[in-house]
């Protein structure tokens, strides 16, 4: 191992270009191959959008980056560290520098808003209470919810839940934030707020942001870099403008939202003849 256990010195050479690097990652769950050789890189200090149709394992991708899952083969490097081979302690230390915004927000339902945001600070630091209070209120102010500090998660709307969760994931001033479907199920106003927040946070805190989404316009509007995953592979990668001009029919279908095309409308199924042909004599009707 090239790092020492005290702190994480960035491994030389990896430093400047990309913060996260996936190299030929293969991952299977049960009998289903979810990733079949995915390679992509996330540039440092930028907002990267990973897009793809539902069910292509975008959340799985985030879990691979966060070390909650291990790939069957291939490499996952975050900030120069090979995530699957990290020992537990080092993995947990690496995660302290990551924030992740879950689709559901995943707030702790038995703690109020203030305590939710304070949670990572209380666990990972030994700051005195008044300092924790200042930090929490600062983070809540950043997401515009300083006034909601005493509410319980059950009392929050979906958009507010996600903003509290965002405040919680930036509580420790991470270098990297992973957003899992930040826009899904949000009304236009909440979505606008989140787009603005993600953009602002990235600019002001010098973060590297990865967002996984199937909302094309919103994602492309804030991303510096985007890639499209489909059928376990990366089918297109580049800046939003490059993607918009992409010639691949799969990329075009996804970006334009065409119902049928190279990405099939039908889930893989046995031949129609096999399902209906024999018993109903449907073959002739289909004629």
């Amino acid at each position: 191992m090239s790092y020492c256990s005290a702190k994480f010195p960035v491994v030389a050479g990896m430093a400047d270009s990309s913060y996260i690097l996936l190299d030929d990652v293969v991952f299977t769950r049960g009998n289903r191959r979810i990733f079949d050789g995915v390679s992509l890189s996330v540039p440092r200090g930028r907002v990267t959008a990973i897009m793809g149709p539902s069910g292509t394992g975008k959340t799985t991708l985030l879990r691979l980056i966060g070390g909650q899952l291990r790939p069957d083969s291939g490499r996952v490097r975050v900030n120069g560290h090979d995530v699957p081979s990290l020992r537990r302690k080092d993995l947990y230390r690496l995660r302290e520098g990551m924030g992740m915004l879950f689709q559901s927000g995943a707030l702790f339902t038995d703690l109020n808003v203030f305590e939710n945001v304070a949670f990572p600070l209380r666990v990972h630091t030994r700051l005195p209470d008044d300092m924790i209070r200042d930090i929490v209120l600062m983070k809540l102010e950043a997401v515009g919810l300083r006034g909601a500090r005493d509410l319980m998660p059950a009392e929050l709307s979906g958009g507010m839940t996600r903003r509290v969760a965002l405040a919680r994931s930036i509580a420790l001033d991470p270098d990297l934030i992973l957003y899992d479907e930040p826009f899904a199920g949000q009304d236009p106003i909440a979505m606008g707020v989140l787009v603005k927040l993600i953009r602002e946070l990235n600019a002001t805190m010098g973060l590297t942001s990865v967002l996984v989404s199937h909302d094309v316009p919103e994602s492309l509007s804030i991303a510096d870099h985007a890639c499209i995953v489909s059928d376990g592979r990366v089918i297109g990668e580049g800046t939003p403008d490059e993607l918009r001009k992409h010639t691949s029919p799969k990329v075009r279908q996804f970006l334009n939202g065409d119902p049928d095309g190279p990405v099939p409308f039908h889930y893989p199924a046995p031949d129609a003849q096999a399902d209906w042909g024999g018993t109903l004599g449907g073959g002739s009707r289909r004629g």
């Binding site: 879990r63 966060g66 909650q68 947990y92 230390r93 690496l94 995660r95 302290e96 990551m98 924030g99 992740m100 879950f102 689709q103 559901s104 995943a106 707030l107 702790f108 339902t109 949670f119 990572p120 666990v123 990972h124 969760a165 919680r168 994931s169 420790l172 992973l178």
Partner: peptide, 22 residues
């Protein structure tokens, strides 16, 4: 089970907190 279903355990893990211990 509900904490697991609502990803609270996962999010704890991603915050660098081991849910087994916490």
């Amino acid at each position: 089970g509900l904490m697991k279903a609502t990803e609270q355990l996962s999010s704890m893990e991603m915050m660098g907190v081991d849910p087994l211990r916490r």
